[in-house]
Simulated assay, not measured.
Amino acid sequence: MSDRDRVLAAAGVSRETAAALDLYVAQLARWQTIKNLVGPSTLPEVWTRHVADSLQLLDAAPGATRWLDLGSGAGIPGLILAIAGRESRPGLRVDLVESNSRKGAFLQETARLTGAPARIHVARIESVVGRFAATEIVCARALAPLTQLIAWTAPLLKNGTIGLFPKGREAQSELTAARETWTFEADVIPSRTDSSAGIIRISSLSDQLP
């Protein structure tokens, strides 16, 4: 069984969603030659390194329909979540924030082709994050250290938004560093795709330490 088939079987998606994810992967390969969207060495492992890694976030927030993905880049995880959750979560909407206009163009075209319930915002995070007060989940992958992610999303986290931030083996050290600046409640969800990685889930944020 191929990586693709294993990932799709584990996710339990419909034929239509599988076709949309196939289209996403094809678009990623095509645009990779124009704009370096992902690390070239990861492209042959796109289903395990990127698709499956993104899909696990849906299970980390069952029922959530309002998502915000920061520094979306190639749409990982935001666009993949929008494609995969469209059928299973009525009313799903994912807002993707990306400052690079060429990456934004990839996201716009791919969201249109796949019919993903995604809105693309080509802007800097700090200039738009305040618009998403009603967001249930904010996520970001391979974007910045946790301390910086909290600084960007503090207005949301203080208002009840949950933060889901995939991290590698540095998850615990980033938590320790962030607690030197911020007061918050968090846990680490073990990653299904990398035994040394985890998803930092921030469930509340009190304030910045003096």
Rank of each mutant, 00 (worst) to 15 (best):
residue 181 T to S: 14
residue 199 I to G: 03
residue 131 R to C: 06
residue 168 G to R: 04
residue 132 F to I: 05
residue 192 R to W: 08
residue 169 R to I: 02
residue 163 G to R: 02
residue 159 N to F: 06
residue 158 K to V: 10
residue 198 G to K: 00
residue 150 I to V: 07
residue 150 I to H: 00
residue 148 Q to L: 13
residue 201 R to Q: 10
residue 190 P to I: 03
residue 124 R to C: 13
residue 136 E to I: 01
residue 175 L to I: 05
residue 124 R to V: 14
residue 131 R to S: 12
residue 156 L to F: 03
residue 179 R to T: 12
residue 148 Q to K: 15
residue 164 L to Q: 06
residue 184 F to Y: 11
residue 132 F to E: 05
residue 147 T to N: 02
residue 133 A to Y: 13
residue 147 T to W: 11
residue 191 S to N: 06
residue 147 T to Y: 11
residue 138 V to C: 02
residue 149 L to K: 01
residue 153 T to K: 04
residue 161 T to Q: 01
residue 192 R to S: 10
residue 195 S to N: 04
residue 131 R to K: 14
residue 190 P to K: 01
residue 163 G to F: 01
residue 192 R to F: 12
residue 201 R to C: 06
residue 179 R to V: 09
residue 180 E to H: 14
residue 129 V to H: 09
residue 185 E to Q: 12
residue 148 Q to N: 13
residue 135 T to M: 13
residue 130 G to I: 00
residue 153 T to W: 04
residue 166 P to L: 04
residue 130 G to L: 01
residue 199 I to L: 09
residue 169 R to C: 08
residue 161 T to G: 04
residue 191 S to R: 06
residue 146 L to V: 08
residue 200 I to L: 08
residue 190 P to T: 00
residue 196 S to A: 04
residue 125 I to W: 13
residue 187 D to L: 09
residue 192 R to G: 15
residue 159 N to M: 07
residue 134 A to F: 10
residue 171 A to C: 01
residue 166 P to C: 03
residue 186 A to K: 03
residue 192 R to M: 13
residue 130 G to Q: 02
residue 187 D to S: 12
residue 181 T to G: 12
residue 151 A to L: 10
residue 187 D to M: 09
residue 132 F to T: 01
residue 189 I to H: 11
residue 166 P to H: 04
residue 143 L to D: 08
residue 197 A to K: 07
residue 141 R to G: 10
residue 174 E to G: 10
residue 148 Q to R: 15
residue 190 P to L: 08
residue 163 G to H: 10
residue 194 D to G: 03
residue 181 T to M: 13
residue 196 S to H: 10
residue 137 I to L: 05
residue 178 A to F: 07
residue 128 V to L: 02
residue 165 F to M: 04
residue 192 R to K: 13
residue 189 I to S: 06
residue 148 Q to E: 12
residue 201 R to N: 10
residue 132 F to G: 08
residue 136 E to D: 05
residue 133 A to E: 14
residue 170 E to T: 09
residue 135 T to A: 12
residue 173 S to W: 12
residue 133 A to C: 10
residue 198 G to S: 05
residue 161 T to D: 00
residue 174 E to Y: 09
residue 177 A to L: 15
residue 190 P to A: 00
residue 160 G to Q: 03
residue 136 E to G: 05
residue 185 E to H: 14
residue 165 F to W: 05
residue 140 A to K: 03
residue 155 P to G: 00
residue 177 A to P: 14
residue 191 S to A: 06
residue 154 A to V: 08
residue 185 E to D: 15
residue 126 E to C: 02
residue 193 T to C: 08
residue 135 T to I: 07
residue 176 T to Y: 12
